[in-house]
Amino acid sequence: MRLLAQPRIEVNGRPPSAEQFPLPLVNHGHFTAMQVRGGRTRGLDLHLARLDGATRELFGDALDGDQVRNHIRHALGDDTPDASVRVYVYWPDGDDAASIVVTVRPPAPSPKSPQSLRSVGYQRPAAHIKHLGGFGQAYYGRQAVREGFDDALLTGHGGVIAESGIANIGFFDGTSVVWPDEPSLHGITMQLLEPRLPDIGIESRRGPVRLADVTGFEAVFITNSHGVAAVGRIDDMTLPTGHDVVEAAARLYESVPWDVI
């Protein structure tokens, strides 16, 4: 396999010109991110549903899933079976249809484990959409890294936890994984794990989780397109790591079938 020398970008299935690729200047749009291996990805139907739903909400129009798949396949070409792929959707002024941007980069490794998170008082607007213009989460994420953490943990009033800057977060209370019920993005990895956890004897539910409560959980972990990783520290609180539930969740995710793009 030949690794990409530089990122590959296509707009509507073609290399972009300066005129048709204003994405760096656009913040009204949305995207999805996936890991591709052998021309396949996990949860393809969920990615396509995410893109279609956000396009309907933001622009009042549907998005053809087959067209999205064709654009991804074209951008991957015959020489890049493994990659990190993002699909962006925005609507240029004056156009009568949305534009689909596909970026292809080298595949991402599994996330570092355990993770450390720095809590911040910030929640994403329209958090249910994986939207463009994520200055706030990027700002706090970079600030957290400068302070020696891996990412930011986004919280609301009273220290109610929502999500990390780039991942969902789950808390195991001994019988169930509790996913915070604050406004957040329901990530694809979370969507794949949540209905499967009962298959391995672990219940899953939504509920409030506060910073003051986190040391009472037996395990904490994050999920995103890179995989599943334990959380070993939030602010100055040390959390238990090495719990079987985190390893079980990681194995469960690894068992999810890959879908042909």
Rank of each mutant, 00 (worst) to 15 (best):
R37F: 10
A54S: 15
V11K: 00
A18D: 12
P22R: 02
R14L: 14
L4M: 04
L48Y: 11
H47I: 02
S17L: 12
G29N: 02
R50E: 03
A18I: 15
H47C: 04
L3S: 13
P15H: 10
V36D: 01
G13F: 02
E57V: 08
R2H: 11
T55F: 06
P22A: 02
G38W: 09
E57P: 05
L3E: 15
G13Y: 02
L48M: 11
R14Q: 14
F21G: 08
P15N: 11
Q6L: 13
Q20V: 15
H28L: 14
D45P: 00
A49H: 09
R42Y: 02
Q20S: 15
R37A: 08
D45E: 12
A18S: 13
T55H: 05
V11Y: 03
V26T: 10
G39W: 01
L58A: 14
R50K: 11
G53K: 13
T32Y: 01
P24A: 12
G38F: 08
P7A: 06
F31H: 04
P24E: 11
P15A: 12
P7D: 10
L3F: 14
L46K: 03
P7T: 09
G13S: 10
L4D: 00
R37Y: 12
L44I: 02
T55K: 04
P22D: 00
P7M: 06
P15C: 07
F31T: 02
N12G: 14
P22M: 04
A18P: 06
G39K: 01
L48K: 07
A54Y: 03
L58C: 12
R37V: 07
L25D: 10
G39M: 02
V26D: 00
T32H: 01
Q6S: 13
A33S: 15
G53W: 13
V36A: 04
E10F: 06
L4F: 02
V36M: 05
R8H: 09
R8G: 08
L51T: 06
N12Q: 10
P24W: 13
L44V: 08
R2V: 05
R8A: 10
H28Y: 15
P16H: 08
F21I: 09
H30I: 05
L44C: 08
V36L: 03
E10S: 09
L46N: 00
P24T: 10
G53T: 14
F31N: 02
V26N: 03
N27P: 07
P15I: 07
N27H: 12
G13A: 07
A18Y: 13
E57F: 13
G29Q: 03
R37M: 08
R40I: 01
P7K: 04
D52V: 04
N12R: 09
T41S: 08
P22K: 01
L46M: 08
G53S: 15
G38N: 08
T32N: 03
G43K: 00
P24Y: 15
E10W: 03
F31D: 05
E10R: 09
L3D: 12
R56G: 05
L3Y: 14
A54C: 14
V11N: 00
V36P: 00
G53C: 10
R42Q: 09
G13N: 05
D52T: 06
A5L: 06
L25F: 14
P24I: 10
L25A: 13
L58H: 14
L44S: 02
F31W: 04
T41R: 00
R37C: 03
E10K: 06
M34P: 02
L51Q: 05
E19A: 15
S17V: 12
Q35G: 13
